[in-house]
């Protein structure tokens, strides 16, 4: 594998998890903020808010996990491995 393709693979793996992590963290931060506000205003609804928040967190987090899986695929199970090594 020549150096440029190696660098591109590493860079794209880092970018995929970096960008998805950035976006998912922003979204999750807003979610937690709203949940804290809701609990502060209405402490009796803590149980329902917590369940909904965890569910929403999981759904948002799955986006970051997709990025992570793509990074893993690029690094450890690259489908174009043969072409990269051969070329």
């Amino acid at each position: 594998m020549d150096k440029i393709s190696l660098a591109l693979v590493c860079f794209s793996a880092a970018t995929s998890i970096g960008l998805t992590g950035f976006a998912a963290a922003l979204g999750m931060g807003r979610g937690v903020e709203s949940a804290c506000n809701g609990i502060a205003r209405n402490p009796e609804a803590k149980g329902a808010i917590t369940t909904t928040m965890i569910l929403g967190m999981a759904l948002i987090e799955s986006i970051a996990i997709y990025g992570l899986v793509i990074a893993f695929i690029l690094l450890f199970a690259n489908p174009y491995k043969a072409a990269l090594i051969g070329g």
Binding site: L59, E61, S62, I65, Y66, L68, V69, F72
Partner: peptide, 16 residues
């Protein structure tokens, strides 16, 4: 996809 990938990705990330 989402249900399987979420569990798999989280645990694999922890292990790695």
């Amino acid at each position: 996809v989402s249900l399987s990938m979420r569990l798999f990705g989280n645990i694999l990330a922890k292990e790695i």
